[in-house]
């Protein structure tokens, strides 16, 4: 899933300073699961904004809605009326959702309430970790199912570097993923595979090649 984290309340409240009626829009997908922008967080943010603004001379009206997915037009079509009512929309989705909302409602000012962090998962309650670097060309079959592109601080493909010590990366609070790759490959009896030099990666398939776009004519309708 996409992992995101709410911006500080201070930052969000400053962004909506000049608005009197806002639509706070949650998303029922990834950001609900990572407790950043689901129905519950929409409620808390709405109440928080009201509590803050009630103390001044400019109270705020909040409209609350959470859609199935912000990254799909059909779900945004459903909130058209609600959007019309509001001066601005606070999107509590990932960066994709925010942009879909902005594109779907071109005359509305759209504010992001979250910082989108990574493609990852929850390893335990309250802890999420990056797992995929979205490099556009998966190499997990070469590294025992553990991704160095996303999980090595230097995205080294022939690791570990000299900074690895006791299974820890030289970067604070990071596990050395190459340590884990080696241990797993050893356990699976595939050390020989690691002795092969992984050549320079084709980063053009990653973001470095420019924004990526997928076209599949075989599934296009009309």
């Amino acid at each position: 899933m996409i992992v995101a984290e709410q911006k500080s309340f201070d930052e969000i409240s400053k962004m909506v300073e000049s608005f009197d009626k806002v639509l706070i829009l949650g998303c029922n997908e990834c950001v609900t699961v990572c407790l950043a922008g689901g129905e519950k967080e929409v409620g808390v943010l709405a109440t928080s904004l009201r509590l803050l603004r009630k103390q001044g001379d400019r109270p705020i009206t909040t409209l609350e809605e959470t859609v199935t997915r912000q990254c799909e037009w059909e779900y945004l079509d459903q909130i058209e009326k609600l959007a019309e009512e509001a001066d601005c929309i606070i999107s509590m989705a990932c960066g994709v959702g925010v942009q879909y909302v902005a594109e779907r409602f071109p005359d509305k000012w759209v504010i992001p309430a979250l910082d989108t962090k990574c493609a990852g998962g929850s390893v335990k309650h309250g802890q999420w970790e990056e797992r995929c670097g979205m490099c556009g060309e998966c190499i997990l079959h070469k590294t025992g199912g553990i991704c160095p592109v996303a999980r090595c601080s230097k995205r080294i493909l022939n690791g570990p570097c000299g900074g690895s010590q006791n299974g820890k990366c030289e970067v604070k609070d990071v596990d050395c993923i190459w340590d884990q790759i080696y241990k797993r490959m050893m356990a699976l009896g595939r050390m020989d595979q690691l002795l092969e030099i992984e050549p320079e990666k084709n980063w053009s398939k990653a973001r470095d090649g420019g924004p990526r776009k997928l076209v599949r004519e075989d599934v296009m309708i009309g």
Partner: peptide, 8 residues
């Protein structure tokens, strides 16, 4: 934390 944030 929220109550601190909103000034209550």
């Amino acid at each position: 934390k929220v109550l601190d944030d909103v000034g209550i």
